[in-house]
Write a protein that binds this DNA or RNA. Structure first.
Lengths: 131, 131
DNA sequence: TGAATGTACATGACGCGTCATTCAATGACA
DNA sequence: TGTCATTGAATGACGCGTCATGTACATTCA
């Protein structure tokens, strides 16, 4: 039978666990964000989208699919893509079989930047996630 | 000796691990945030500060100490406390031995709200963090 | 076919966190 | 004690994400 003391202990552990997740998330995300910002002038979310586009190189009506692979809102994705497009890293292509949809393509510049940034990204993950 | 293939595999695993952390962080944070917002009209960060103040009930020049226990910026903490104070949940007390510092106290209302919100918070952690 | 409903994406208002800066109070030291 | 550097906290400009909404296209079904 669970005593009050048991429950308090369990709660403490839960909260500890949560704080540790938060810290590791913020530490890692922050480090990557700052590094990418400094070296490539793009933020973490921009990179994440770039990364997703990069590794689904067979064509499809992307925007939609992207939203499903990231915790970002549809609206956030739209704005991130705005920025990527303005930066000339990605281009929106209209989709013939459903003209509401768009799919995305890396530009040459985008492909090049992604290649370098990915190295940095993986390195920082490795460093921050341990292993 | 590590082959190119080895490195690619390892990178994939790293990225998978990272995405899983992101998802679990966003899912959990989002759920708690929405719930607290709906039932108690405070956000997750407000609660976190409330929670920190609540469990360091011996007095000290808090603001500073708070900043060290949370990934939030000093400036963010300051603004969160603004909101908590406006909501009447917390009050800033000037500190006699160092008049630059402030420490925080829960108001009666703050203490009450924290008690209820903490129950919800722990429940959602439990639900989302598994265990 | 055409009205109703649903879907893909964009957009604007808004809230919040960050950075840089500021301000007051302290501390160090000549 | 008067200067200079430092520290705790607040503030304003700014960027980004979210929510609610808008717009164009698609689908369903009578």
């Amino acid at each position: 039978m669970a005593t009050t003391r048991d429950r308090q202990l369990h709660d403490r552990q839960l909260v500890e666990q949560w704080r540790s997740i938060q810290n590791s998330y913020f530490r890692t995300a922050g480090a990557i964000d700052r590094a990418l910002e400094a070296k490539f002038d793009i933020g973490l979310n921009e990179f994440e989208i770039l990364d997703l586009v990069a590794d689904s190189e067979e064509s499809a009506c992307r925007m939609k699919a992207l939203g499903e692979r990231t915790p970002m809102t549809q609206s956030a994705v739209s704005k991130v893509v705005d920025r990527l497009e303005k930066a000339g890293l990605v281009s929106r292509q209209t989709c013939v079989d459903d003209r509401r949809s768009l799919f995305l393509e890396l530009t040459e510049e985008g492909r090049a930047l992604h290649a370098s940034a990915a190295v940095e990204h993986r390195a920082l993950l490795k460093e921050n996630l341990g292993s």
